[in-house]
Design a protein around this nucleic acid. Structure first.
Length: 456
DNA sequence: AATGACATCAACCGCAGAGTT
DNA sequence: AAACTCTGCGGTTGATGTCAT
C-alpha cells in the first residue's frame, strides 16, 4: 500500500505538497541543528535509506538518522515511518473479522489506548487501529448504532456489580483512581489471546474490565477532582475537552431540556454537595464545566467520538449503545438480556441509594464504566431531589431492582423529574426510544427490529 | 463525464513520561 | 533538583481513493 503510494509519489511530484515539499522549520519538535527537514509523504528512496539505516544501526536513536544517513527527516518522522510502514512483520491489508472483534473488545477495555491495543494485534500498528476505530465511529454514528455490542456492555455491568460487591464500597474505585494507568490484568489479555483463534466471536467474553470505561469517565472534568494530582492537569483538561464540543452541541440540539438543566440544575444540585460537588464553580466556565458532568457520564464519550467529529446524533444515538445489537458482528451473542438491562438502568435510576450514601457515591463513580457511570449520574441527580425517599435497599443490585421495578413508573417519574432538570430524563428509556427511530441504512448496520420490541 | 460526499490512510503536532546529563 | 533529550502516544489533519448521484 504504502509502497504503491510511494511509487506514485516518486513518479509524480505534482500537487502543491510535492511540488513544494514542505520543509520543516528545522525542529520537528526536536533539535536538529537547524537543518531543513522534509515533511509529507515518504518516497521509496527515503524508505530505502531508512531501512538501510535501521539495518545497520538498529532501531532507536531516531534523531541520529538524519545525521548519519543524510535523510532530511526528523527523528519522529523516521520512527513513525519505520513503525507504521517499514518494520518487518507488519501485517498489511484490511483487518480480519477476528481482529475487528478483538479491537472492539480491547477498546471496551482500554479506551483509546491504541498502542496497547496494537500490542495485542501482532503486525498491526496503533495508527491502523486508531484509523479503523475512527472510521468505525463515523460509520456507526451515521447509522445510529452503538459502538459496543450489548454483550460488552452487559459484561461491564456484571463486572461493576462484582467489583462493587468485592470492594464493598468505593475502595476499589479509589484504587483505580490512584492507578491511573488502569492496567488490564495480564490474565485478561491471555484470555483474549486464547480466544483469538476461536473467533468469530463467542458470547462468553473474557472478563470485561469496566474500569477502563470508568477511566474514560474520569477523564472528564466531572471527575477531575477525584483524579490524583499525579495526572497532569493539562492532560486532564485535554482529555476532558476531547469530547466536549460535539457533545455539548449534540445535547443542546437534541435535548433542549438541557438548556434549562444547564442553567438551573447545577446550582440546585450543587447545593447539597457543597464544595464537594465535582465541578469547578468558575462562573466564567460554568457552562461547559457543568455540562462536562454529563459528558463524563457518558462512558462512551471519551474515546468514542473524535473531538473533530462533533455530531448531533452522537449523544442520542450512542448513549443507549448497550441496547443495540452489533448487527455488523452478528455473533455478539444474544440480546435477550438487553431489555432487562435497560430496565435495570431505569429501575436503578429510580431507586437512588440512601441519602447518607449520596455524597460519597456521587464522589465515587464505581468502576463499572458505561452503565454505572450512567447510573451514577442519574443517582446523583436524583438524590438532589430525592432526599426524603429511601425506598430501596442499598444492597440491591440493578438486576435485583429490575426484577421488581415498574418500568412505566420509572419513566414517568423521570419525565417529571427531568422536565426541568436533566438530559438524563431522556436517558435510559427516552434515549433508547429516540435511538430506535434512527435506523441504519446500510445492510450491516441496520438494527434488527426484534431487538427493540423486546426493549420497549 | 462531472461532481460531491464519504472513506481511508499517512503523516504531523503537541504533549507527557522516562532517562540522561 | 533542574534542564535537556529521546521516545512514544493520542488527536488531528490533509491527500487521495471510491462511490453515488
Amino acid at each position: 500500500m504504502s509502497h504503491t503510494k510511494n511509487e506514485r509519489e516518486d513518479g509524480m511530484l505534482s500537487k502543491n505538497r510535492k511540488e513544494l515539499p514542505l520543509i520543516d522549520d528545522g525542529n520537528c519538535g526536536d533539535a536538529d541543528g537547524g537543518a531543513l527537514l522534509k515533511k509529507g509523504p515518504w518516497t521509496s528512496a527515503e524508505d530505502a535509506i531508512l531501512i538501510d539505516y535501521v539495518k545497520k544501526h538498529g532501531e532507536g536513536n531516531w534523531n541520529a538518522v538524519q545525521k548519519h544517513s543524510g535523510l532530511f527527516r526528523c527523528g519522529k518522522s523516521c520512527r513513525l515511518r519505520w513503525a507504521n510502514h517499514l518494520r518487518p512483520n507488519l501485517k498489511k491489508g484490511a483487518f480480519t473479522r477476528e481482529e475487528e472483534h478483538l479491537i472492539i473488545e480491547l477498546h471496551a477495555k482500554m479506551g483509546n489506548k491504541w498502542a496497547r491495543m496494537a500490542a495485542n494485534l501482532p503486525g498491526r500498528t496503533d495508527n491502523e487501529i486508531k484509523n479503523y476505530w475512527n472510521t468505525r465511529i463515523k460509520r456507526r454514528q451515521r447509522a445510529g448504532l452503538p459502538l459496543y455490542p450489548p454483550e460488552v456492555c452487559l459484561q461491564a455491568l456484571k463486572e461493576s456489580h462484582r467489583t462493587s460487591a468485592i470492594s464493598g464500597g468505593d475502595e476499589g474505585t479509589h484504587d483505580i483512581l490512584q492507578n491511573n494507568t488502569y492496567e488490564i490484568p495480564d490474565v485478561i489479555f491471555d484470555s483474549l489471546k486464547a480466544n483469538q483463534n476461536v473467533l468469530p466471536y463467542v458470547p462468553e467474553l473474557p472478563d470485561i474490565s469496566a474500569s477502563c470505561m470508568m477511566m474514560k469517565v474520569l477523564g472528564s472534568s466531572q471527575y477531575s477532582s477525584f483524579i490524583p494530582p499525579a495526572i497532569h492537569r493539562q492532560k486532564r483538561l485535554r482529555e476532558s475537552a476531547a469530547f466536549s464540543p460535539g457533545y455539548t452541541a449534540a445535547v443542546k440540539n437534541d435535548c433542549p431540556l438541557f438548556e434549562q438543566f444547564e442553567d438551573n440544575m447545577f446550582d440546585k444540585a450543587a447545593q447539597p454537595f457543597g464544595q464537594s460537588f465535582p465541578f469547578e464553580p468558575d462562573p466564567l466556565t460554568k457552562k461547559s464545566q457543568s455540562f462536562s458532568a454529563f459528558q463524563g457520564s457518558h462512558a462512551l464519550s471519551h474515546g468514542n467520538f473524535s473531538a473533530s467529529e462533533p455530531t448531533l446524533e452522537a449523544v442520542k444515538l450512542e448513549l443507549p449503545s448497550l441496547q443495540y445489537p452489533e448487527t455488523e458482528l452478528e455473533n455478539w451473542g444474544t440480546l435477550s438480556c438487553s431489555s432487562s438491562l435497560l430496565e435495570s438502568i431505569d429501575a436503578f435510576i429510580q431507586s437512588p441509594q440512601t441519602t447518607s450514601g449520596v455524597v460519597l457515591d456521587s464522589l465515587s463513580p464505581r468502576n463499572s464504566g458505561l452503565l454505572d457511570a450512567l447510573l451514577h449520574e442519574a443517582k446523583t441527580l436524583s438524590s438532589a431531589k430525592n432526599h426524603a425517599s429511601d425506598k430501596s435497599s442499598n444492597s440491591s443490585t440493578p438486576c435485583d431492582i429490575a426484577e421488581r421495578s415498574n418500568f412505566n413508573t420509572c419513566e414517568t417519574e423521570w419525565e417529571n423529574y427531568g422536565e426541568t432538570l436533566s438530559p438524563m430524563c431522556h436517558s435510559a428509556t427516552s434515549f433508547f426510544s429516540e435511538s430506535i427511530s434512527a435506523s441504519g441504512s446500510s445492510l450491516d448496520e441496520q438494527p434488527p427490529a426484534e431487538t427493540f420490541t423486546g426493549i420497549l
